[in-house]
Design a protein around this nucleic acid. Structure first.
Lengths: 179, 179
DNA sequence: CACGTATGAATGAAAG
DNA sequence: CTTTCATTCATACGTG
């Protein structure tokens, strides 16, 4: 009953939707499995906070598989990273009744936001962040190192990865167009 | 369909596991009536967005009545709050018919945050979300105020509530263990 | 047993 | 970055 007026809002912008193969109603971006696959792949390879350039590039590449905007990529990484970390911290996900007291002496919780305590062990990632997307056209000697990936491509193929083996779509490389 | 879950480790569908409320149900959490009762009670008393500590504490307490994880509590509150609000949201003022589809001003900078985000005019007076809950162990002078509850306990009994009157189970207080 | 509804789970989008 | 809001997907469950 209370479900009828839910659509009374706006949503549906443009209404030009429904055309995507994903059958996305519209409103918010609904990534296709290919898009997710690629994004996940990038994430797993270490990319966590893509730069504006990277975002645009990725977005462009992903647009091949469906409608997408830069902000979608931006948000995706933010969310993915945040949730990954959240889980890692076992804050509120998985784990049944914890008797385990991994709880660090955190204060009253919720506001550990601004504590830049951690000396960010992710310096490693920093290197990877520039990865890319803006300098492999010529130098393929970048020493990007995977951190803990079950899948490590050879560095020479990093951005030449075509996903052809995972996607049924035509090869689409992530190589930057150049700049 | 368009949404394949990749990371959900335990989905286990197809199982007509018929909800044995004591756990071992791999599908989704199915709260027992006692759990729901307590959760609802907490909600009615003003708790909207429990902190991590609260979530864990509540989860631990609820585990007495059946299998439960922290994330279940987390989701419960998220959903309950959202749906409560959604129901109450129909009383907002009318909106124009034109759904502005204009978006994506597309700026090439990282500040997607400042993209044109609808300046949503309707923000129903949200209930207090900063319900104390983190300092009643010693200070019972917290100024928690119920806003519109049909049931308001005295603040001194807030977390000493045992539910003995509503549940047939042994008293179980939610008093935070302390921190 | 089909179907509508209630609600757990997930995640895109944003706010802080 | 962390946390919250909104929307959607998936499913348990009641009903006719």
């Amino acid at each position: 009953m209370q479900k009828e007026e839910m659509m009374s809002g706006f949503c549906m912008r443009g209404g030009s939707v429904s055309s995507n193969n994903s059958g996305t109603k519209c409103g918010r971006w609904n990534p296709t499995s290919e898009q997710v696959k690629l994004l996940t792949h990038l994430f797993k390879s270490g990319l966590r906070t893509p730069t504006t350039d990277q975002i645009q590039n990725i977005s462009s590449q992903l647009s091949f598989y469906g409608k997408i905007e830069s902000k979608n990529v931006f948000y995706w990484f933010q969310n993915h990273k945040a949730r990954e970390r959240h889980k890692r911290r076992k804050i509120s996900f998985h784990h049944k009744d914890d008797d385990d007291l991994t709880n660090i002496p955190r204060r009253s919780s919720r506001n550990f936001a601004e504590m830049n305590h951690v000396s960010e062990p992710e310096r490693v990632m920093e290197t990877l962040q520039l990865f890319p997307l803006n300098s492999f056209g010529e130098s393929e000697a970048e020493k990007l190192r995977m951190q803990a990936n079950d899948e490590c491509w050879d560095h020479t193929t990093v951005f030449s990865y075509t996903m052809g083996e995972k996607l049924e779509h035509p090869p689409l490389d992530l190589r930057l167009s150049f700049m």
